[in-house]
């Protein structure tokens, strides 16, 4: 199960809407082992594409240098699909390198024919390990403080 706070959830949706019809991408990080997805880091889609996303080499390094300095890890890796459902594509599965990350996919496909979009967005979460996709429940909380740390530790 992915446990995510309302503010971060909203921020991911807003990013997907803002970048539509191109795919949006980014990560949410938290202290190592804490399971708290608390620092929202939108990353420019270097591909600037409606069907592909990637972090530039420079952005990838910058994100990880920040993680290193803060003793944080990636808790959530997210991106959007702008014309298809919020389910991992073959490319998503092949390129998923972080078995410990939740992979969130949001879909703005209801606006697929539009150049901008402000409507409903699907939000789904997966684990992707060695090519195997497992969808998981998403629990939205007001604040991580209300969740027992034992429950968050598995996040």
């Amino acid at each position: 199960m992915l446990i995510i706070d309302q503010a971060t959830y909203d921020a991911i949706l807003a990013h997907a809407r803002r970048d539509h019809p191109d795919e949006a991408c980014g990560v949410v990080t938290g202290p190592e082992g804490s399971g708290r997805a608390e620092r929202f880091i939108p990353v420019p889609n270097a591909a600037m594409s409606p069907t592909y996303y990637e972090f530039s080499s420079e952005d990838l390094l910058q994100v990880h240098k920040d993680l290193w300095d803060r003793d944080e890890e990636i808790v959530v890796t997210y991106h959007s699909h702008t014309a298809t459902e919020a389910y991992p594509s073959r490319t998503d599965i092949a390129r998923a390198e972080e078995p410990n990350s939740h992979y969130v996919i949001v879909s703005t496909r209801d606006g697929a024919e539009q150049q901008s979009y402000d409507g409903p967005v699907e939000f789904r979460s997966y684990r992707i390990v060695d090519g195997v996709v497992t969808e998981e429940d998403v629990k939205i909380v007001a604040a991580y403080a209300e969740v027992p740390s034992s429950e968050l530790g598995d996040n």
Partner: peptide, 10 residues
């Protein structure tokens, strides 16, 4: 030396 898995998908 820093080694990082690329982040990308479709």
């Amino acid at each position: 030396v820093v080694v990082l898995p690329a982040v990308a998908g479709g």
